[in-house]
Design a binder for these strands. Structure first.
Length: 189
DNA sequence: AACGAAGTCAACCGCTAATTT
DNA sequence: GAAATTAGCGGTTGACTTCGT
């Protein structure tokens, strides 16, 4: 479709890599307006970027306490375990890794860990434990579905709430215990 | 040294969910 | 309650870098 030429045509937004100057303006604007209402931030900053773009830049690069690169062995191990548990729920996984972003973890997974997993999958692995974990998750999700309707379940369980780590510290004991069950079934070859 | 293939990662896109009007 | 708007998520793309020949 050809763009209209009636004077009301949409303003063309900036795209592509961010410059240092844009970063500075965005950070300044967020200091004033807060890291919310991204449409407002986008407008007030005078960046000619959409809110979505501003949000992404802030979350992935500019926000305080962000860690970039050098994913440690512990972090890698945790990503692997959480992915096994949650699948491609990158934001939930990132929530368990302070300073890491969903985008970074997703990229790390796709470029580093997927290969590792594929390699491991080619090795014979104990089926029982693997199934146990998946069955548990299925049950969790089933219960969650039930709760949406007329509650006939015994436990009011919400998987998203269960994995809402925002109120917790960096205590990984619970998840380690949870996952210890099948720890030996992978990454050991 | 040159070139193509493969890998990496920042940013965009499309969709859904949540919130506001 | 409905429609419009905004926020957030995961998948994908494309530019850039590194590696192998």
């Amino acid at each position: 479709m050809a763009p209209k030429n009636d004077g009301s045509a949409k303003k063309v937004m900036n795209k592509g890599a961010w410059t240092a100057e844009e970063d500075r303006k965005l950070a300044q604007c967020i200091e004033i307006h807060g890291a919310k209402r991204w449409k407002t931030v986008a407008t007030k900053s005078g960046l000619n970027r959409c809110g979505k773009s501003c949000r992404l830049r802030w979350l992935n690069y500019l926000r305080p306490n962000i860690k970039r690169g050098n994913i440690s062995d512990d972090e890698e191990d945790l990503i692997l375990r959480l992915h096994k548990l949650l699948g491609n729920r990158w934001s939930l996984i990132a929530g368990r890794l302070p300073g890491r972003t969903d985008n970074e973890i997703k990229n790390y997974w796709n470029s580093h860990l997927r290969k590792k997993i594929n390699k491991n999958e080619k090795q014979p692995q104990p089926v029982l434990l693997q199934e146990t974990t998946h069955q548990n998750i299925s049950k969790i999700n089933e219960v969650n579905e039930d709760d949406k309707g007329i509650g006939n379940s015994q436990v009011n369980f919400d998987v998203n709430e269960f994995f809402d780590f925002s109120t917790e510290g960096y205590d990984l004991d619970w998840v380690n215990k949870f996952l210890d069950l099948d720890e030996e079934s992978w990454l050991t070859h």
